[in-house]
Computed example of a mutant assay.
Amino acid sequence: MNYEVLAQQVLDGYQLTDTEALAILKSPDEDLLPLLHSAYKIRNYYYGNKVKLNMIINTKSGLCPENCGYCSQSIISKAPIEKYAMMKQDEIVAGADRAASLNVGTYCIVASGRGPVNREIDIVVDSVKAIKEKHSDMTICACLGILKPEQAQKLKEAGVDRYNHNINTSANHHENITTSHTYDDRVRTVELAKEAGISPCSGVIVGMRETQQDVIAMARSLYALDADSIPVNFLNAVDGTPLEGTHELNPRYCLKVLCLFRFINPSKEIRVSGGREVNLGTLQPLSLYPANSIFLGDYLTTEGQAGEKDRQMLEDLGFEVDLEPLQHELKVN
């Protein structure tokens, strides 16, 4: 396969066939550099050498009634994690201050649980208003679980720019990962965010015993959802969860997955996310040829790479931190 020709076709509006998508995932390792070069051609067309920095604050940890098999915070997890109720406003605002001091463009307010109660929505609303007064150009992303329409509207009015709710896996594989909510529940929340005028963020976790056809289906589903931002996580199997001991990935396959997501979602922000450190290892810098976004610092209950190393990685690559505020035009049905 001539990946560079395929990349140009994608830039001209072409959509990959399943045969071409599968060929990317199954490509021999000796094709990895040409594949990365071609994915970078698409990424560079839309984003140049800029990289968006994101930072997470875990405002509520554990205490979740859902049975997601990958998650250390779920009701079925035996992982020894810190558990606490919703943080106070001053703690959330302080996290935003720290993100701003590190030139992080997107601040992600995350809370565990099936969905937020109104008291938690009120805390987030008040926090976002306070943050926007101090850091007007900061993009605020909320990730609070399954939303109700009126909650989505409150978040929009407060100044939330983006809402994250990952599909996590394919519709076909979903019941193998969780049964306490449906795949359609997740899709509906992304659509609710869009209807409220909030930029949709939705992504996946690769390495949860899915097939390569499932991976292709995930990328296509996010294309259909028109998600503006796509975090691609690679399973960091936590001891005490049902997926404990699952290690299906290698760095080269992870890079092929990122290239596939760039080919199928050419114009979207693609973020190499949780698990990049343990799954990509020394090949982490190569992930930014197809992807154009990373998390700085720690994740929810697992550690990330030290911020100094991430910044050195960007400098060594010759990449530039993207400080532009979020600009988007949502197509509301």
Rank of each mutant, 00 (worst) to 15 (best):
Asp310Thr: 12
Thr182Val: 05
Gly105His: 03
Ser74Asn: 06
Glu308Tyr: 15
Asn172Thr: 15
Gln213His: 13
Glu303Gly: 14
Ser38Phe: 06
Leu35Ile: 10
Ser267Ile: 05
His135Pro: 05
Ala306Met: 10
Cys64Asp: 14
Val187Ser: 11
Gln73Arg: 02
Ala21Arg: 09
Glu308Val: 14
Cys201Gln: 06
Ser112Phe: 09
Glu210His: 09
Leu147Cys: 02
Ser77Lys: 01
Met87Gln: 11
Cys64Lys: 05
Asn67Tyr: 04
Glu91Gln: 14
Ser77Tyr: 04
Lys41Leu: 15
Ala100Phe: 06
Lys132Phe: 03
Asp322Lys: 07
Thr59Gln: 09
Glu150Gln: 11
Arg220Pro: 01
Asp239Glu: 15
Pro34Leu: 10
Ile264Asn: 03
Gly304Leu: 11
Cys68Pro: 00
Glu210Val: 08
Gly240Trp: 06
Phe261Asp: 10
Thr179Ala: 01
Tyr84Cys: 10
Leu192Ser: 02
Leu258Arg: 03
Ile109Asn: 04
Thr59Val: 12
Ser27Asp: 08
Ile294Phe: 01
Asp29Trp: 07
Leu25Asp: 14
His165Asn: 13
Pro290Ser: 13
Lys26Pro: 00
Ser229Gly: 00
Lys41Tyr: 06
Glu269Trp: 11
Lys156Asn: 08
Asp184Cys: 00
Asn54Glu: 11
Gln327Lys: 14
His165Ala: 11
Asp316Gln: 14
Phe234Arg: 00
Pro34Ser: 10
Pro116Glu: 01
Gly62Val: 03
Lys83Leu: 07
Asp185Arg: 00
Gln15Thr: 15
Val93Asp: 09
Ser74Asp: 08
Met218Phe: 11
Gly318Gln: 05
Asn164Ile: 01
Ala111Ile: 07
Thr179Glu: 13
Lys52Pro: 02
Gly274Cys: 03
Leu53Pro: 04
Cys71Ala: 11
His135Lys: 02
Lys256Phe: 02
Gln8Tyr: 09
Val187Met: 11
Asp226Tyr: 06
Gly318Glu: 06
Leu63Arg: 04
Ala96Glu: 12
Leu288His: 11
Leu102Thr: 01
Gly274Glu: 03
Ala152Pro: 15
Val51His: 06
Asp31Ala: 12
Glu244His: 13
Tyr84Asn: 10
Pro325Asn: 09
Pro325Ala: 11
Leu147Trp: 04
Leu63Ile: 01
Leu16Arg: 09
Ala130Ser: 15
Gly203Arg: 08
Asp90Ala: 14
Leu192Ile: 03
Gln312His: 15
His328Trp: 07
Leu323Pro: 01
Asp298Glu: 09
Glu244Gln: 15
Pro28Ala: 14
Val204Gly: 01
Cys254His: 01
Pro65Ala: 07
